[in-house]
Each structure stands twice: as C-alpha cells, then as structure tokens.
C-alpha cells in the first residue's frame, strides 16, 4: 500500500510522538475539567433524584482522570503521525468547506458546489482544467437531478425549471 520512504515522512521521532501524546491527552483532560465545572453549575441533586448535572459530571470527571493517566503514560505506541506541511492541505480543505456551508443557504447550493469542486480538483488534486470543469459541472447537475428533481428534497437552489 505504501512505499517505505513515505512512511518516513509521517512517522514521528519518539520525542515528537511523546510530545504529541502529552498535548492530546492534556487537551482531553482540559475538556474534561471544563465540562465538569459546567456540569457542577447545572445542579447535581443526589443519586435518588439526580439533577441535570450529575451524569455529565461523572462522565467528565472520568474523562479528565483517564486523560490525566494518558498524560503520564505518554510513551509512543506507534500509532502517532507527524503533522507536516502536507497537513496544510487539510486546513485549506476545512476552510473551503466552511466557506461552502456559509454560502450554502445564502446563494443556493449550485454556485458554491461548483466552486468547491473546482478548488478541490484543481488546487488540491491538481487535475487538468478539462477534468475539473467536466467533473464539477456534471456532478452539480447530478446532485440537482438526484436530490431536487428526483427525491424532491428541499435544498436551497437558484435554478428553477
């Protein structure tokens, strides 16, 4: 599936992996503590008549404790991967999707869909312009026909027949 040199690219050093593990566990721990505080404020009640906060409190405390143990036991397990320059592609992907969602209801689905496809195919995928144009237009038309014409789903759209 993968060539050995690519593996070198994503396989982090032990120190890197450990640092990454500590950060991930610490983030989880912080979320647990934060959720615990919020749950506490909701009201705990008692076991016979639990308040809204009791269960979230139990869960978030358990999460914080497990995450704390993970912080201590941060030895690399071999499942970690390095973040590198190629991770930037993911950031672009996510930002473009955010833009897509923001425009979706404002201007209908058609134009953002074509735009997103062009961006991903040309910029991220380095397809030829010919391929890009064909795929984005055909796919958008197919989605229109499938969801709006075929299944009569109420997608925001600007093209009417």
């Amino acid at each position: 599936m993968t060539a050995p040199d690519q593996e070198q690219e994503t396989r982090p050093s032990a120190a890197y992996a450990r640092r990454q593990n500590v950060i991930a566990a610490a983030v989880l721990c912080a979320i647990g503590v934060g959720a615990a505080i919020l749950s506490w404020q909701l009201g705990i009640g008692d076991l016979a008549d639990p308040g809204p906060g009791l269960w979230p409190l139990i869960v978030s405390v358990a999460m914080a404790v497990i995450a704390a143990v993970l912080v201590v036991r941060s030895a690399p397990t071999g499942e970690e991967e390095r973040f590198g320059r190629e991770s930037l592609v993911v950031v672009i992907g996510v930002v473009s999707l955010l833009g897509y969602v923001l425009l979706f209801e404002q201007v209908g689905f058609e134009i953002p869909t074509v735009a997103l496809l062009v961006l991903w195919l040309k910029l991220l995928g380095r397809e030829s312009w010919r391929m890009t144009v064909i795929v984005s237009v055909v796919a958008t038309a197919a989605i229109y026909l499938l969801f709006i014409t075929g299944l009569e789903v109420s997608l925001p759209h600007i093209v009417h027949f």
């Binding site: 201007v107 209908g108 134009i111 109420s154």
Partner: peptide, 13 residues
C-alpha cells in the same frame, strides 16, 4: 460566484 448570488434562493430559508 458571489456576483451571481443576487438571484433568489428557493428552499432553505
């Protein structure tokens, strides 16, 4: 895309 977006949107809100 933005220039074209002045058309009316049906469905959604």
């Amino acid at each position: 895309a933005l220039a074209l977006s002045a058309c009316s949107v049906q469905g959604g809100s």
